[in-house]
Design a protein around this nucleic acid. Structure first.
Length: 945
RNA sequence: GCGAGAGUGGCGGAACUGGCAGACGCGCUGGAUUUAGGAUCCAGUGGCCGGAAGGCCGUGGGGGUUCGAAUCCCCCCUCUCGCACCA
């Protein structure tokens, strides 16, 4: 009984591909290249999730299709294997994280191979491979060796950094410190997010609402010496070059917003007596606007220099260095208490009561440079130390935040922009200082600038104040420098040495580990437990690792490690030349394969991973190590796969049903009845207890009770996780692949459905029976199989299928491509004669989607080579066009009949045929035909009166 | 609050450039076959009225443009995902 048995044929073909190295890619492309890349997975202990094979199947189809079209395809896979879970496991079990990591990689590899992806497994790599992170460290040293030349907008070797004379005069140590301050990789005392529970510092991006993204633990802010990467230097190019990319607009916009470029002006406000103001001004007129603000001014950044005349007070961040100096003795206590509170508050708490602004007066005043008026300086946490200059001029009439603050503390509000008459602005209230207007308008109360429109005003005043040395045009970014060190064990060690003096104390001077000494491997540790202090676990490393002597000098190794992002910043380059021990990638191979033509992965990496990788790539580009300005030409985000659809009812403690529409979440996160806040419990019910009434679902037994119906994200806690191993066991890998592609568009979020898996498995069974005689004792072709030529009708079906499947595969519309193949099978299953001429091309069309089944059928059809490099079938236009078409005939836009006409019938013939159709003739009788619309091959429409 | 995306049968989803709404799959109904099957094959399946022929309604809601709108424009509603005082 030769039934379709994926459990048998799938391992068979996987072994075949592996033994014959079917998907081994040459070092250099032998025909037009195509680089198809998946976002490589983190090998967690849970194994593959059904979300992984979604993107992986899509790229596999593209790769297999491209090979059959004669392209030379690079399609690799690897593992992003550094990271917290492995380290936490190490701490729990006191085993080296490498052990569990390697076990997980093995499991992932098994699962990936079981799905039949056509990766070149010779190129597999893990970011934790010592031979891999050797080059991650090497790239770090490139960053360390690079400074950013603003004039050329380009990263250059640190040796080319011009040294100011006064620095050079101070000697070599001063020069080295000066260079260190300009490197793309530099150290800084940063206010960091220290997470005591995880025992590490987290990047801003890893802190969500004041809690750690992983685990949801509390995070506090403490200052600590950190490695930073100067990604802000590249902000402009990272933004501009998005234009070059074939990426979803949404992702580009996310990146643009993240970079957050804004233009405006930096303005200095004089700190001192109003009498000294004029003297200061004339000094400034001579010296111009200084690079660094002195102690006698408060420098602010504003995007609305046109509202300077309306600046009635100033605000500085609680962390601003001027706080102690500006605070008067009367205000000292209040200020100190306020700043203490602000420091202890997480970002979450700061933003929580965002309606309620808090702040405290310093007691000091600054002089408004345009009006000469003294205005008070306040401290408030709505001003962030990390953006702009950490200080603002407050214009309450034209900035919502300033307006709220001014109302809270009764500060003057002076309107300086007349919004004009408009339906949605209360002009009177704005002019009276009772409402806030943030739009553009016409200047008022602005001295010589009165009457200017906002835009012109901005330019004029910026230029005027620049001439007087009071301001300068400025560009700022929301993007911050990248906090690049972690206080963890399981990451790449920094290849950096700290120089020690004779007493063994650090001198503050740095030295990169010589390239010949790379890699710096991780030392073995006695235990992996965090010691609860913010210092890294590598502090516990053996002295033999920790201390190094080079050229007679003693050094201590850097003990921070790199964040997980590091390894994924350049893996796409290493895949091109994974075993090279001389270079991170061979230049010729890099040039031949880059850029990545198609990159598919989850939308969760839309900003960080992609931005970081682009940044590294640009540095490598500037330094001449790679040939393209951007790494990933085309990007596609696969949508999330949700769990199976769930129906939920809510009941009170007494068992009374509550309609889903009447249920809300309490502030504490509990479900409750909206009307009286009585607690209710959600309960999942079976679909057969539910029916549809109108546009909602209700309980069959209680139709007045509305049921909630939706699909949830898969999670262990909800228990709706689908395991790919189980699907492959029960339905086969081809069924899993096909189902994930058939669910809907690749980019869409879609719910899982076991019934749907069953459906595609059914299709694969039908494909099998189309070719194979299932009823026979031994394996043989179906009795309907024929060597005779196909009929004209069969050819039309075949060639239309080829045309549609080709078009849809090209456009990555895999769901509709599969639908077309199903139609083919439905048609040919009904055929008494199934000619080879039709079956063979069909098997080739199916091959990228269900490669195991296709290979098996191909073999049964008498071929002894894999079909992986067979020529993709071509649609013959003679058979894709019908000779006659059925065209709908409308009267007043409603379809009333259909007529069969030659496909190339001209409008007159079409109209003629339509008028002759008996039903239409009857409808037109006695009516006046005002107009006839004919679209050849599509329709006829009579407009009658 | 701001931004992006999406609302089409019982369900997942199709529909080229404005031109037959519901391809394909699931489910359901009926039939054939079978010792039996949750297997296979065939047919039907948006709603309402009707015996039928046929008619009317129908792509979240309301308006508009057009001979013709799921598709274009305006207003509103709902859901999902981002962002969260960035001066």
């Amino acid at each position: 009984m030769p039934r379709y048995n994926p459990a048998q044929i799938e391992p068979k073909w996987q072994a075949y591909w592996e033994e014959r190295q079917t998907f081994r890619t040459p070092d250099l492309p032998t025909s037009k290249k195509l680089y198809v890349l998946d976002m490589f997975p983190y090998p967690s202990g849970d194994g593959l999730h059904v979300g992984h094979p979604e993107g992986y199947t899509a790229t596999d189809i593209v790769s297999r299709y491209a090979r059959m079209r004669g392209r030379c395809v690079l399609h690799p896979m690897g593992f992003d294997a550094f990271g917290l879970p492995a380290e936490e496991h190490a701490i729990r079990t006191n085993t080296p994280p490498r052990e569990s990591t390697e076990k997980n990689i093995e499991n992932f590899t098994r699962q990936l191979k079981m799905l039949g992806f056509s990766y070149d497994w010779n190129r597999v790599l893990a970011t934790t491979d010592v031979e891999y992170f050797k080059w991650t460290q090497w790239i770090f040293l490139v960053l360390f060796d690079t400074w950013f030349d603003r004039e050329q907008q380009k990263g250059r070797p640190i040796a080319e950094l011009p040294i100011p004379e006064e620095i050079a005069a101070e000697g070599e140590a001063a020069v080295r410190r000066y260079q260190d301050r300009h490197r793309l990789a530099y150290q800084a005392d940063a206010l960091v997010n220290w997470c005591p529970a995880l025992g590490t510092v987290l990047a801003n991006e890893e802190v969500i609402d004041g809690k750690s993204e992983r685990g949801g633990h509390d995070v506090v802010r403490i200052p600590l010496r950190q490695w930073m990467l100067r990604i802000t230097a590249y902000a402009d190019r990272l933004e501009k070059d998005l234009e070059l990319l074939d990426w979803p607009e949404g992702v580009k916009k996310l990146q643009r917003d993240w970079i957050g470029r804004s233009t405006g002006a930096e303005v200095d406000f004089f700190l001192g007596d109003a009498d000294a103001f004029e003297a200061w001004k004339s000094r400034r007129a001579e010296t111009g606007f200084p690079e660094e603000p002195g102690e006698d001014v408060l420098r602010v950044y504003t995007t609305r220099p046109d509202t300077l005349f309306g600046a009635t007070y100033m605000v500085i961040a609680p962390e601003h260095p001027f706080v102690p100096r500006l605070t008067t003795s009367e205000q000292k206590e209040a200020v100190e208490s306020y700043c203490r509170k602000a420091a202890s508050k997480s970002d979450r708490e700061r933003t929580e009561g965002s309606k309620q602004k808090t702040g405290v007066f310093t007691g000091a005043y600054a002089v408004n440079p345009v009006s000469g008026q003294p205005i008070p300086i306040w401290i408030a946490d709505y001003v962030l130390i990390s953006y702009g200059t950490g200080a603002i001029m407050a214009v309450p009439a034209h900035d919502t935040r300033d307006f709220e603050f001014a109302q809270q503390f009764d500060l003057p509000i002076v309107a300086v922009v007349d919004p004009g008459e408009s339906a949605d602005v209360d002009r009177e209230a704005v002019l009276a200082g009772q409402a806030c207007f943030v739009g553009e308008g016409t200047a008022i109360h602005s001295g010589p600038y009165d009457g200017l429109p906002t835009r012109e005003f901005k330019e004029r005043i910026t230029a005027d104040l620049s001439d007087k040395g009071l301001a300068r045009p400025a560009v700022h970014y929301k993007l911050r420098d990248w906090l690049f060190s972690r206080q963890r064990f399981w990451g790449e060690p920094f290849p950096i040495l700290h120089e020690l003096d004779d007493e063994g104390r650090p001198t503050g001077l740095l030295r990169p580990v010589p390239e010949s000494d790379l890699p710096v491997d991780l030392p073995p540790l006695e235990d992996y437990k965090p010691h609860g202090r913010p210092e890294p676990p590598l502090e516990k490393a053996p002295e033999s690792w920790l201390y190094v002597t080079l050229d007679g000098k003693r050094y201590r190794r850097e003990t921070n490690t790199m964040p997980q992002w590091a390894g994924s910043c350049w893996y796409y380059l290493r895949f091109i030349d994974p075993r090279n021990d001389q270079r991170f990638v061979d230049a010729e191979k890099e040039k031949a394969w880059m850029p990545v033509d198609l990159y598919v992965g989850g939308a969760e990496h839309a900003v960080l991973h992609l931005l970081y990788a682009r940044f590294w790539h640009k540095v490598l580009y500037d330094r001449g190590y790679v040939s393209t300005p951007e790494p990933f030409q085309k990007l596609v985000n696969q949508g999330m796969i949700l769990g199976e659809m769930e129906y939920t009812t809510y009941q009170t403690g007494e068992g009374v049903y509550v309609s889903a529409a009447d249920v809300e979440k309490s502030p504490e996160g509990q479900w409750q009845r909206r009307s009286d806040q009585v607690a209710v419990t959600p309960q999942r019910i079976e679909p057969d207890q539910v029916e549809k009434r109108g546009d909602r679902f209700v309980l069959k037994d209680h139709p007045e009770i509305e049921v909630e119906s939706r699909a949830y994200k898969m999670s262990k806690s909800r228990g709706n996780v689908v395991n790919p191993d189980a699907i492959v066991r029960d339905y086969g890998a081809d069924a899993l692949r096909l189902y994930e592609m058939f669910m809907g568009p690749l980019e869409a979020t879609k719910p899982w459905s076991m019934a749907g898996v069953h459906g595609v498995r059914n299709f694969l069974d039908r494909v099998w029976r189309l070719v194979i005689d299932e009823g026979a004792e031994t394996m043989r072709l179906h009795p309907s199989f024929s060597e005779e030529p196909a009929t004209d009708e069969q050819r039309r079906v075949l060639h239309k299928t080829i045309e549609a499947v080709t078009r849809d595969t090209e456009g990555m519309r895999f769901n509709t491509a599969i639908a077309r193949m199903m139609e083919f099978v439905n048609y040919f299953t009904r055929q008494e004669r199934r000619p080879r001429e039709a079956l063979e091309p069909f098997v080739l069309l199916l091959a990228p989607y269900a490669p195991h089944l296709a290979e098996e059928l191909w073999q049964q059809l008498g071929h002894d080579e894999s079909l992986s490099y067979e020529k993709w079938p071509e649609a013959d236009p003679r058979w894709t066009r019908d000779e006659t078409v059925e065209v709908p005939v409308q009267v007043l836009g409603k379809v009333r009949a259909r007529v069969s006409v030659p496909a190339d019938a001209d409008p007159a013939a079409l109209e003629e045929a339509a008028r002759n159709e008996p039903r239409i003739a009857r409808l037109l009788e006695g009516k006046q035909v005002v107009k006839v619309i004919t679209v050849p091959g599509r329709l006829v429409n009579f407009v009658v009166r």
